Amino acid sequence: MPLLHISLRAGKPEAYRQAIFDSLYRAMREALDVPEDDQFMIITEHDPSNFRYGNAFDVNRSDDLVYIQITVFDTRTPEQKTALFRRIAALLGDSPGLRPEDVFVVILDAAKENWSVGHGLAQFA
């Protein structure tokens, strides 16, 4: 049950944003084996004055940079995470056409007992 927060500069068309959603969902299905229809994703768009980045680690980023923060159960292995990073970059390269330099991903691990997905219940505790 990953939860994704996606941030990008404002101005991209709806089809572009939907392609990001679709590519990320596919990457999670393939690399993390998430269940069908497990799609909890938010895109936040930012004005240029509220969106900053650098070229640290010798990565030449552009204004097309997309920040992706993924919160997952703390049961994911390093191998699964590495596979997910690779798959996300490849699929976002295919659609909507992002350069791998413009894909910035952070995975946050959360214990299962920290999740409530509705009804005020701790479904995974």
Score class of each variant (00 low, 15 high):
Ile88Val: 08
Phe21Ser: 06
Ala110Trp: 05
Tyr53Gly: 06
Glu30Arg: 10
Leu8Ser: 01
Arg9Tyr: 01
Val117His: 09
Lys81Ala: 13
Phe104Asn: 13
Asp33Val: 09
Phe40Gln: 09
Glu36Gly: 03
Gly120Arg: 04
Ile20Thr: 11
Val34Asn: 10
Gln39Gly: 02
Phe51Gly: 09
Glu36Cys: 04
Val34Cys: 02
Trp115Gln: 10
Ala90Glu: 12
Asp109Leu: 00
Asn55Tyr: 00
Arg17Glu: 12
Asp102Ser: 01
His5Glu: 15
Asp47Trp: 07
Asp47Ala: 15
Thr82Cys: 12
Glu113Asn: 14
Ala19Val: 05
Ser116Trp: 01
Ala15Gly: 08
His46Ile: 00
Thr71Glu: 12
Asp38Ile: 03
Gly93Phe: 02
Asp63Ala: 01
Glu36Leu: 06
Ile43Gly: 00
Ile20Cys: 06
Pro2Ser: 09
Phe40Pro: 08
Asp47Gly: 13
Ala111Lys: 08
Val106Thr: 15
Asn50Arg: 13
Arg9Asp: 05
Tyr25Leu: 15
Asn114Pro: 04
Gln18Trp: 00
Phe73His: 08
Ala122Leu: 12
Ile88Ser: 03
Asn50Ile: 08
Met28Cys: 02
Phe40Thr: 12
Pro2Asp: 03
Ser116Glu: 14
Arg9Cys: 02
Asp94Lys: 10
Glu101Arg: 00
Ala89Asn: 07
Phe40His: 05
Gly93Ser: 03
Ala89Glu: 03
